[in-house]
Simulated scan of single mutants.
Amino acid sequence: MGIGFSAQTFQLLEGIRDNNNREWFHANKAEIKEHCQDPFAFLLVCATQELSDHSVRLSGGKQTMFRLNRDVRFAKNKDPYNYHVSGTLTRSGLKNEQGGLVYLRLDPSGGRLGAGYFGLTAKRMGPIRDRILEDPDRFKTLVEDLAKHDLEFGTESSLTNMPRGFTDKADHELAWALRMKNFMVTRPMKRNDWKGDGVVETVVDFVKATTAVLEFGLVSVDKPKV
């Protein structure tokens, strides 16, 4: 059984984007499930199987996918549906994972893969910053290893100034890392990257290349200081 992403997959995602209303969505709901959601769930299952003996056990499937329906109660954008299919691979096998995870997003332009820790509060980001300072050589090795795979930490949403408690480190060689609000690495995906069974290998290779990111935060984020 193949993954099943095709030109029709992207046509449907474009359709949701361009016809974001209940009538169009329900008229195409069965096809969206067949060509977008079901193969995405199967991809997560296949990746789980391929990673079954990996050092950081990650798993996912239908239960770790996010809904297409949007909660618009407090949103400025009142479109009722997301036009991307997304989900995660987590150590708990649940999508409400509070620790490190791998994120997959399929959208009309292609999408992206991500790995690490996202949406951390300052309190939960603090231990990662502490660890960067306590073990700078390990962190620098991590950055160098990521670069070998053409990957790097995302710094787009970094703080302009040093975070509270780290203001005396403004001149530190790793100050840029201390200013990060998230501890995430991403990889853009083109449409063709999703087509064929090779997408499983692409996801698995990405997980293996970013495992050190997850491991770096295991102690510091998943077991935060009291």
Score class of each variant (00 low, 15 high):
residue 225 K to L: 13
residue 47 A to S: 08
residue 60 G to H: 05
residue 208 K to A: 04
residue 23 E to V: 11
residue 144 E to W: 06
residue 48 T to V: 00
residue 79 D to S: 14
residue 105 R to H: 15
residue 13 L to K: 05
residue 8 Q to G: 03
residue 152 E to P: 01
residue 82 N to Q: 13
residue 93 G to L: 10
residue 122 A to L: 12
residue 208 K to D: 12
residue 93 G to I: 01
residue 5 F to R: 01
residue 175 A to C: 12
residue 162 M to R: 07
residue 62 K to R: 12
residue 53 D to Y: 09
residue 134 E to I: 02
residue 209 A to K: 08
residue 202 T to K: 14
residue 24 W to G: 01
residue 118 F to G: 10
residue 111 G to K: 11
residue 172 H to W: 10
residue 162 M to S: 09
residue 56 V to C: 12
residue 194 W to T: 09
residue 177 A to D: 02
residue 167 T to C: 02
residue 96 N to S: 13
residue 146 L to R: 07
residue 181 K to W: 00
residue 168 D to P: 03
residue 90 T to V: 05
residue 62 K to E: 06
residue 52 S to V: 14
residue 16 I to L: 02
residue 141 T to G: 15
residue 33 K to Y: 11
residue 131 R to A: 03
residue 143 V to A: 15
residue 128 I to K: 10
residue 67 R to K: 11
residue 173 E to A: 14
residue 81 Y to Q: 09
residue 76 K to V: 08
residue 180 M to F: 11
residue 122 A to D: 15
residue 219 V to F: 13
residue 54 H to W: 05
residue 189 M to W: 03
residue 19 N to K: 03
residue 169 K to S: 13
residue 63 Q to C: 02
residue 218 L to I: 13
residue 31 E to L: 14
residue 10 F to L: 01
residue 102 V to H: 10
residue 61 G to I: 01
residue 51 L to K: 07
residue 16 I to Y: 05
residue 62 K to A: 06
residue 33 K to H: 11
residue 109 S to L: 11
residue 55 S to T: 12
residue 149 H to P: 13
residue 136 P to V: 05
residue 9 T to Y: 00
residue 53 D to T: 05
residue 168 D to M: 13
residue 44 L to D: 00
residue 55 S to C: 10
residue 106 L to M: 08
residue 176 W to C: 05
residue 87 G to K: 06
residue 64 T to V: 07
residue 60 G to D: 05
residue 219 V to R: 14
residue 198 G to W: 10
residue 120 L to P: 02
residue 79 D to M: 12
residue 1 M to H: 08
residue 141 T to P: 13
residue 90 T to H: 10
residue 187 R to Q: 13
residue 157 S to G: 09
residue 19 N to C: 09
residue 74 F to S: 07
residue 98 Q to R: 15
residue 181 K to N: 07
residue 224 P to Y: 01
residue 130 D to A: 09
residue 224 P to N: 05
residue 6 S to W: 00
residue 110 G to Q: 10
residue 120 L to A: 09
residue 15 G to D: 06
residue 10 F to H: 01
residue 149 H to N: 15
residue 94 L to I: 01
residue 121 T to C: 00
residue 142 L to F: 09
residue 38 D to H: 08
residue 180 M to L: 15
residue 91 R to V: 06
residue 118 F to I: 15
residue 110 G to Y: 09
residue 125 M to F: 11
residue 226 V to I: 04
residue 139 F to K: 07
residue 174 L to D: 10
residue 154 G to W: 07
residue 210 T to D: 03
residue 161 N to V: 10
residue 32 I to A: 08
residue 210 T to E: 01
residue 69 N to Q: 10
residue 18 D to P: 08
residue 171 D to G: 06
residue 13 L to P: 04
residue 96 N to F: 11
residue 222 D to G: 04
residue 113 L to T: 00
residue 29 K to P: 06
residue 37 Q to A: 14
residue 198 G to R: 09
residue 43 L to P: 02
residue 181 K to C: 00
residue 43 L to D: 03
residue 152 E to C: 07
residue 11 Q to D: 11
residue 98 Q to D: 11
residue 216 F to S: 01
residue 222 D to F: 10
residue 110 G to E: 11
residue 84 H to G: 01
residue 223 K to L: 11
residue 134 E to T: 05
residue 52 S to P: 02
residue 153 F to L: 00
residue 225 K to D: 14
